[in-house]
């Protein structure tokens, strides 16, 4: 994965990589910012990754 450029401007830190954090990170990149997504566990996804199907579409949560 590419690392941030030398310029430190225009970056945002998102603390917590569950569904909220991942969504915030994705949206921030679409709004023109570089994101550090900081997660305490070894993988992102949080509790959502543990869920079976989700209401009402029964989509897999991954």
């Amino acid at each position: 994965m590419a690392k941030a450029k030398k310029s430190r401007e225009g970056t945002v830190m998102v603390l917590g990589g569950g569904i909220a954090g991942v969504q915030a990170a994705l949206d921030l990149t679409d709004l023109g910012y570089y994101v550090y997504l900081v997660e305490k566990s070894p993988a992102i996804g949080g509790v959502m990754a543990q869920l079976d199907k989700t209401f009402p579409t029964n989509d897999c949560s991954l």
Binding site: S7, G10, Q23, Y34
Partner: peptide, 29 residues
């Protein structure tokens, strides 16, 4: 719940974007 969390995340991203709009794009790869 999830929709509410997702909504808040987009909202928070939007506010952050407004706060530092002058820096927009400066670190984007």
């Amino acid at each position: 719940d999830i929709p509410e969390s997702v909504t808040q995340s987009s909202g928070a991203a939007g506010i952050a974007s407004g706060l530092i709009k002058k820096q927009r794009g400066k670190s984007l790869i």
